[in-house]
């Protein structure tokens, strides 16, 4: 995908548009983009300064401007004291900073593409670099495309995230949308830790059911369901949105606590509702004993209905 945007690979179908212009046939050098790779790609015989100046020189930027620009980027990336070191003697994360710097240094780029750039970085440093990138993004205001399998990384920078599944974009939305209304069961599973509870269900009167449990649905959902023929029905609800109360009431379901995982800041409770296992996320003060009953409720606005893996949405 990234390589199609940058032009390193030709798409077999469809168009790539930059600012509305078709660029399919343009080679990467004519597309005005920068790319940062998974592993630091640096010119190791040059100094850090020369590395950063390289794309500018190739673009015939005047020498005085190069100097200013390199200094600027080096400051942002906090490598200004290393400018005159040979690039090969840097540590892995410094190298990656340099290679990011080479992407950022050009002022005329229409987009910067990142291909999992933080894979090689130590977890402690990832925090810092992520923050740095976010700041850079806000400071320079350019289009960035970021590829990652790490959801935290994804949502840190992104205004919008495209979730890819099987070579297809299944949802393109803000982090909030991805979290609150995942468009596809894969998005539900992939975004969030733990992922969404997804349960296979069947049609029942007024809603759907699994085992002996009946889940009532909104009327518009029922309407849509009537028009659909597919039998592949699923409902999803995020562990965060399942409510727990100690007492039974009309809209609660009795479930059995199987396991409680204490993760310090929160707890993940595994419960059994009929035959179905569900994960419930509770804060650290939650307490219950294993094999004891608790009462769950599923707020309707968080209960998502999926037909053929895709979300059923209310028509406007």
């Amino acid at each position: 995908m990234l390589n199609i945007i940058s032009g390193l690979i030709q798409p077999s179908e469809g168009e790539v548009l930059f600012d509305g212009k078709r660029v399919n046939e343009l080679s990467p050098r004519d597309r005005n983009i920068a790319q940062v790779f998974q592993f630091p790609v640096i010119y190791d015989s040059m100094t850090v300064y020369e590395n950063l100046a390289f794309p500018l020189k190739n673009n015939k930027v005047p020498a005085s401007r190069i100097k200013v620009r390199v200094q600027e980027i080096a400051e942002v990336l906090e490598i200004e004291d290393k400018l005159h070191k040979k690039a090969r003697n840097l540590t892995a994360d410094e190298k990656q900073k340099v290679s990011m710097g080479r992407g950022l240094v050009r002022e005329d780029v229409s987009a910067i593409l990142f291909d999992e750039p933080l894979t090689v970085i130590d977890p402690q440093l990832k925090w810092k670099l992520r923050r740095k990138l976010k700041q850079i993004h806000e400071q320079f205001d350019i289009t960035m495309v970021y590829v990652t399998h790490d959801q935290l990384e994804a949502s840190t920078f992104a205004d919008k995230i495209a979730v890819m599944y099987d070579g297809q974009v299944v949802q393109f939305g803000t982090p909030t949308e991805l979290f609150e209304a995942p468009n596809h069961t894969f998005v539900g599973y992939f975004i969030g830790s733990p992922g969404m509870n997804i349960v296979e269900v069947e049609r029942c009167s007024g809603g759907v059911c699994f085992g002996s449990t009946v889940l009532p649905l909104e009327s518009w959902q029922v309407d849509i369901l009537k028009r659909m023929t597919s039998g592949n029905l699923k409902v999803g609800i995020r562990p965060e949105f399942i409510e727990v109360s100690p007492i039974s009431s009309d809209d609660t379901y009795e479930a059995n606590v199987r396991d409680i995982e204490d993760l310090g800041t929160y707890k993940i409770v595994t419960v059994e509702l009929g035959e179905q296992e569900l994960k419930v996320r509770q804060n650290e003060e939650f307490d219950a004993s294993i094999d004891s009953p608790i009462h769950l409720s599923f707020p309707k606005q968080w209960l998502m209905l999926y037909v053929d893996e895709f979300l059923v949405q209310e028509q406007q």
Binding site: P28, I33, F54, N59
Partner: peptide, 11 residues
């Protein structure tokens, strides 16, 4: 990747 980077840097 090195060639790709160079290509993008317009070397």
């Amino acid at each position: 990747a090195f060639y790709q980077a160079a290509e993008i840097d317009r070397a």
